[in-house]
Amino acid sequence: MRMRLQAEPFDPGAESNSFLARAKGAGASVTFTGLVRSTPDDPVEELTLEHYPELAQRQLEKLASEAVARFGLIDADIIHRFGTLRPGEPIVQVMTLAPHRHSAFEGASFIMDTLKTDAPFWKKERRADGEDWVEARASDDEAAARWWD
């Protein structure tokens, strides 16, 4: 498992390929990439991600280990950016490797759902009319909670 927190952009395809190159005996891999969203109806100029480095590293390690144990993954990597990002840029990438597709999908889904509520990152969006902290959404809490029912 490799966890990486970085300010620099990353190349989603290259990361996925190097992750796959480490695959030994796996039958399935899932790559999820989260991007900075900006739509014509709601244009975002810039996204700033604040984080708590020590806790973020720890939480990502914890979530990945939990996913590996719970879904029988062969491996799981997480890359998460911080700092200032532009629309369309990748924010996060989660990659899982498993014997079969269901565990690869579920593992990636579990990591993303729990990362949203339990990893110390905070988003601030800048629009033409100013800056605002993104509010936590109840739907994200529900998505994370379903794994513990």
Binding site: I91, L115, K116, T117, W122, W133
Partner: peptide, 10 residues
């Protein structure tokens, strides 16, 4: 001890 708002990463 760290105090902060609900997290909004990902």
């Amino acid at each position: 001890v760290a105090l902060f708002p609900p997290m909004t990463g990902g």
